[in-house]
Design a protein around this nucleic acid. Structure first.
Length: 996
RNA sequence: GCCGGGUUGGCGGAACGGUAGACGCGAUGGUCUCAAACACCAUUGUCUGCAAGGACAUGCCGGUUCGAGUCCGGCACCCGGUACCA
């Protein structure tokens, strides 16, 4: 039998690659480097489904292609192996998360290897490996040992700050730091004790401890970063999240806000992803303005506004209920109301607040402040639409220009002052236009938006009442997690101050604990560890370690460097390795990491860049987001009867058949549609259905609505059925009975007239509970890894979300077999015979080949793998038509196809007489346009836009000559019907259009 | 609301402004077979016609052009992200 045996062949080559370390990559080469990275997976217990490899296949194709193009390619894989699921499992079972993680990773590797990826497995990393997280901890320490100098616009070692303090105090320090830093002179600084100066420095370091309002998730027992909270619930598990003030490790990512923003312009990512990061960073350019508080109180309220030009329209001020000035501003008359409001606001969860955005609520404090421009008295309100965490927690309200302020003003009957002559209908709604000239606006009357803004900012700055200011939505990142399964923070506490442990004590390994739950006193799980104390301090004492661990994103924020030099015990990667590989040329992964991993990674990369550890400011030059593969669920329909008890008359309710009494009957899709009345069957089908329904068991039959009037058929209740026993929507009923005896005992299947049981289908998320998970290894076993790879690419554009549908895979399966038959053929005796010849290829054959080379190269450049696969299919079809079995053609075709289908290509490559296993070291075929050039071209001739005839012209004929001959042509003359053409358009090598 | 992306046969999807629907699936008919599976061949956007052919077709309305799925203006719907962010 000549057919290609994928099981044997693929097995053979995977073993070969493994044993010969075919894809081992060196850190030095004459060749140019190319770094292709996949987002490494979290090894979950469920294993890989068919959606996971999509991006990996694409990156593998690029890797293999780049190797053929003469690059030294780094293409590694590893595991982001710290994380919640393993810990949750540990809490339930008591098993150490390391054990579960280890087992899951083994499964993942096994599954990945089956698909024939060209990873250099010797470079594998795992974030939960102490030899790895040693460097996560080390980078944490480096961040702690650094501050951000706004003058040089980069992070610097903390020593440079100490030097500045010692020489000039705080005068020429321009740092990103805590808000409450004191000003001091060099003398004052030098007089401080070591502990005092250290304590001061903590306010400047890039990681710091702070009391911060954080997202606390009681169900998970930990805090979460903003990007881990979606719609007020935790991203993992969907548990409610509340706001809580807690002492936390923080990372000063806001120091990099501007660079994270501008850096986006230099990298090749999709616009939508960049936009997501821009929104997340949320830069707003505006001004801060101080509104003096009216007597008897003193002081001022500072607000941030993006529309300082609307300041003459301010008719009230709104503070967040949590604002620090609130108690002082509340008058005795208003105290009760204010306190009630604050209390109510506190009780409302984040979700409630989001839910009733439309409802206007607020309360008057009883106090006033003064508009700095015109000294008008402005009443001060509280409202929970103002967020304590953004800007200054206070808003100057301009009801004529802001819809929210407008609603508030209407509700509390506050004045509304129009401020621009272009504002329309201000009596009924706010108009936020910047057009026109200012009115009612004191010093800016008659000006335009631009002039007004500049004038006001200058005016305010001169009087110390305000200044231009840029605000970011992004907050500093919370870096503590009250969990066990994460990197321990390499810090101990001495007299309440955090100190780094000695670098030589890294890695600080996770301690053994008896349980993975918080302690009885509410401390994180590490509080359960015996003797969790630092003994390396210089004074010989034992100090308490930090009890929280690092967040999930810590380990993934530099891993692409560790791949460059994964075993290095002295550095996270050697400077030589980093200088050789630089940064990632192509990064492929899901878009769900837009505001998490991808932002944090850029942050850490920029930090490492500032400190001179890496040569590139951005980690990922080009990023492609593969679309999610959804599941396609299949359903069987259980026929189901509605029995309306009120219609039963004198039958006692206990005589009514219970649902359980009814026989199990599964109806096929079109039968269901018929029963539902959605489908009009043909006369033959109708007969079939009636016959079937009439042959139902006696007890059912008498419930038939047309016969008893008691019961009605309802549509079949859809039940998920395992998609693995369904093929082309046809259910393998025997397998179903075998797999689900509980459901199918004594069941009857009413099938289609053609004897098939057809399932319904729907697109849903791929998940175990929906029985729609397709395991890639089942596909590999049945069709082969090459077919799986080709099919996943063929499914549609890489970046698009699409449902997995096994139905079409036969097409690629057939393609591989056709491809094989270009090389082998059965002889009369049924033996497989090699039929490749050494004949010279014909121009037609060369044309087919070079057309395909061109297309394949263009497609890889555009990441348009689906159309490539189409091109290969067409190529093979055409070669079959030409009956071409020539080495000169097939050898190149094998190379073209090898990035997609490496196993079969390796086999054929060897069969063609090349060194076994050397396909990846060959050179990509060179496209020669000469083979595509035609001697003549058949021009379609359009008369008034309609193709009426065709004429052949030599390829190099001039347009005006063609024009003449076309007009002289008999058929054209006929179609022109004697009219004189006004215009003749000749598109070279395309078309001629004659217009009358 | 704002931002990003999309809308083409029964389905997944192709088309440098140049003969729309490549390639694949499915479907129908046929060959092979005792039969099935596999394989192979043919047909397959809709309507109309015996046929040659003709008419209509890329969400909707309009524009630019000899020519528009593609470019421009407006609208509808779908998907994703984000939001009392001042």
């Amino acid at each position: 039998m000549a057919d290609y045996n994928h099981r044997e062949t693929e097995q053979k080559w995977r073993k070969f690659w493994d044993e010969n370390q075919t894809y081992r990559t060196e850190n030095h080469s004459e060749k140019p480097k190319y770094y292709v990275l996949d987002m490494f997976p979290y090894p979950s217990g469920a294993g890989l489904h068919v959606g996971h490899p999509l991006g990996y296949i694409a990156s593998d194709i690029v890797s293999r292609y780049k190797r053929l193009m003469g690059f030294n390619v780094l293409h590694p894989m590893g595991f982001d192996s710290f994380g919640l699921p393993a810990e949750q499992y540990a809490i339930q079972t008591g098993q150490h998360p390391a054990i579960t993680t280890e087992a899951n990773i083994a499964t993942y590797i096994e599954q990945l290897k089956q698909i024939g990826f060209s990873y250099d497995w010797s470079r594998e990393v795992r974030t939960s490996d102490p030899n790895y997280y040693k460097w996560t901890q080390w980078i944490f320490m480096e961040l702690f040992r650094s501050w951000y100098n706004k003058d040089t616009n980069r992070a610097e070692p903390i020593e440079t700050l100490y030097r500045k303090f010692a020489t000039n105090g705080t005068t020429d320090v321009n740092a990103v730091c805590d808000e409450d830093v004191p000003q001091f002179t060099a003398a004052e600084w030098n007089a401080l004790s070591k502990t005092e100066s250290y304590e001061l420095s903590l306010k400047y370091r890039l990681t710091y401890v702070a009391n911060a309002v954080v997202n606390w998730c009681p169900a998970l027992g930990t805090v979460l970063a903003n990007d881990e909270v979606k719609d007020g619930v935790s991203e993992r598990g969907g548990y409610p999240v509340e706001q809580k003030l807690m002492r936390q490790w923080m990372m000063r990512i806001t120091a990099y806000a501007d660079r994270l923003l501008t850096g986006l312009d230099s990298i090749d990512w999709t616009e939508s992803l960049k936009e997501q990061q821009r929104n997340w960073i949320g830069k707003s350019v505006g001004a801060s303005v101080k509104f003096p508080i009216a007597p008897p109180n003193g002081g001022a309220i500072e607000v941030f506004t993006t529309r300082v030009d609307t300041i003459y329209g301010v008719t009230f001020m709104v503070l967040a209920p949590e604002h620090e000035l609130v108690p002082g501003l509340t008058t005795n008359e208003q105290r009760e109301a204010v306190e009630a409001y604050i209390q109510a606001a506190k009780l409302r969860s984040e979700r409630d607040r989001m839910a009733d955005v439309k409802v206007v609520s607020g309360v008057f404090t009883g106090s006033y402040c003064l508009n700095p421009l015109n000294n008008e008295k402005v009443p001060i309100f509280l409202a929970d639409y103002v967020l304590a965490g953004y800007g200054t927690g206070a808003v100057m309200a301009v009801p004529s220009g802001d819809q929210r302020d407008y609603g508030f003003a209407k509700h509390f009957n506050l004045p509304i002052i129009p401020i621009l002559d272009a504002q329309k209908d201000v009596d009924n709604q706010a108009d936020n236009t910047k057009e026109g000239q200012y009115i009612n606006s004191g010093i800016i009357n008659g000006m335009t938006y631009k002039e007004a803004t500049a004038t006001l900012i200058t005016w305010l700055e001169e009087r110390g009442l305000g200044k231009g200011k840029i605000n970011f939505r992004m907050r500093d990142a919370v870096f503590s997690r009250q969990r066990y399964w994460g990197e321990p923070v390499p810090v101990y506490f001495k007299e309440g101050l955090p100190y780094l442990i000695d670098e030589s004590d890294l890695p600080l390994e996770l301690p053994v604990v008896d349980k993975y739950l918080p302690t009885e006193t509410g401390e994180p799980p590490l509080g359960r560890a015996e003797d969790w104390k630092y003994k390396g301090a210089s004074d010989g004492s034992r100090y308490d370690y930090e009890l929280s661990t690092m967040p999930g994103w810590a380990g993934s924020s530099f891993y692409w460097y560790r791949y460059m030099d994964p075993q290095n015990p002295n550095q996270f990667a050697s400077p030589e390795a980093i200088n050789y590989w630089q940064n990632v040329d192509l990064y492929i992964g899901g878009t769900e990491h837009a505001t998490g991993h991808l932002l944090y990674s850029r942050f850490w990369n920029k930090f490492l860049f500032d400190r001179g550890y890496v040569p590139q400011d951005e980690p990922f030059k080009k990023l492609i987001n593969q679309g999610m593969i959804q599941g396609r669920s299949n359903f069987v329909y259980r026929l189901h009867f509605n029995i309306d008890i009120t219609d039963i008359g004198n039958v006692r309710p206990d005589e009514v058949l219970s649902y359980q009494d009814l026989p199990l009957i599964f109806i096929s899709k079109t039968v269901k549609d018929y029963v539902e009345g959605r489908y009009a069957p043909s006369p033959e089908e109708l007969n079939y259905y009636l016959e079937n329904i009439d042959s139902l068991p006696e007890r059912i039959r008498h419930l038939h609505p047309t016969k008893s009037g008691l019961a009605t058929y309802s549509y079949g209740t859809p039940l998920h059925v395992d998609v693995n026993i369904v093929e082309n929507d046809e259910l393998d009923t025997e397998a179903f009975q075998r797999l689900r005896p509980d459901l199918t005992d004594g069941a009857e299947f009413i099938k289609e007239p053609n004897g098939r049981y057809i399932c319904g289908a729907e697109v849903e998320k791929m998940s175990k509970s929906k029985f729609n998970v397709v395991n890639p290894n089942v596909m590999v076993e049945k069709y082969g890894a090459d077919v799986l790879r080709l099919y996943e690419m063929f499914l549609g554009p890489l970046e698009q979300a699409k449902p997995w549908n096994t139905n079409g895979i036969d097409g690629t399966f057939r393609f591989i077999r056709k491809f094989w038959r270009l090389f082998y053929k059965d002889n009369a005796a049924g033996e497989s015979q090699w039929i490749v010849t050494d004949q010279q290829p014909t121009p037609a054959e060369l044309k087919v080949l070079h057309k395909t080379i061109k297309k394949a190269q263009e497609d890889i450049a555009n990441f348009s793998f689906n159309t490539s696969v189409s091109a290969f299919m067409m190529c093979v079809n055409e070669l079959i038509t030409l009956d071409c079995h020539k080495r000169a053609i097939l050898q190149d075709l094998v190379l073209l196809l090898s990035p997609y289908a490496p196993h079969v290509c390796e086999e054929l490559w060897a069969a063609l007489g090349n060194e076994p296993g050397s396909v990846s070291r060959a050179s990509y075929p060179v496209f020669n346009p000469a083979h595509l050039v035609e001697a003549s071209f058949e021009y379609p001739i359009q008369i008034n836009g309609k193709v009426r005839t065709t004429i052949n012209f030599a390829i190099d004929r001039a347009a005006n000559e063609i024009e003449q001959e076309v007009l002289a042509d008999e058929t054209v003359q006929k179609w022109l019907e004697g009219k004189t053409p006004k215009k003749v358009v000749v598109v070279p090598k395309r078309i001629v259009n004659v217009v009358t």
